[in-house]
């Protein structure tokens, strides 16, 4: 059977009048909990900063290494390319020399091919 309006009001009023008879004092407990939480927060902030600093340093170091490797790699490939080009050029000259008349391909002619024509004249 459901409650009537009067019965509900009566029970609500009774509940409304109820008071806790025990002694409660939570001031110190609450303040301690707040201090603990505050310290934890400070600790976690410090920890987070430390982690961030470590990650930052490691990233910077990794980036530096990567940059050095890149520069080193590109320099060596450039040098390698230059070496390859020169070797190819010289080998071509010697190939032509071996295929043609020896007298015709004098050192002067090689100088011409190398682009140092007329240097002796200037000297």
């Amino acid at each position: 059977m459901k409650y009537t309006d009067t019965e509900l009001e009566k029970t609500l009023n009774e509940l409304g009048k109820a008071t806790y008879a025990g002694e409660v004092d939570v001031v110190d407990k609450v303040m301690n909990r707040l201090k603990e939480a505050e310290n934890k927060e400070k600790f976690s902030i410090q920890k987070e900063r430390k982690v961030r600093w470590t990650i930052g340093t490691m990233s910077l170091a990794a980036a530096s290494v990567a940059l050095l490797l890149f520069i080193g790699n590109s320099s060596s490939s450039q040098a390698q390319n230059e070496n390859d080009g020169m070797a190819k050029f010289i080998s071509e000259i010697y190939n032509r020399q071996s295929q043609a008349d020896v007298v015709y391909y004098t050192p002067d002619y090689i100088d011409i091919l190398l682009g140092i024509e007329g240097m002796d004249e200037n000297i």
Binding site: A18, T19, Y20, V24, V26, K29, V30, R33
Partner: peptide
């Protein structure tokens, strides 16, 4: 705190630890 304690009691009787609930309210 006593207002909170009494309200807690009205809302949950002795089904919860009033001291603990009151602390949680203030936190």
């Amino acid at each position: 705190q006593m207002n909170v304690v009494n309200l807690c009691y009205k809302l949950c009787g002795n089904r919860l630890d009033i001291d603990e609930v009151t602390q949680q309210v203030f936190v």
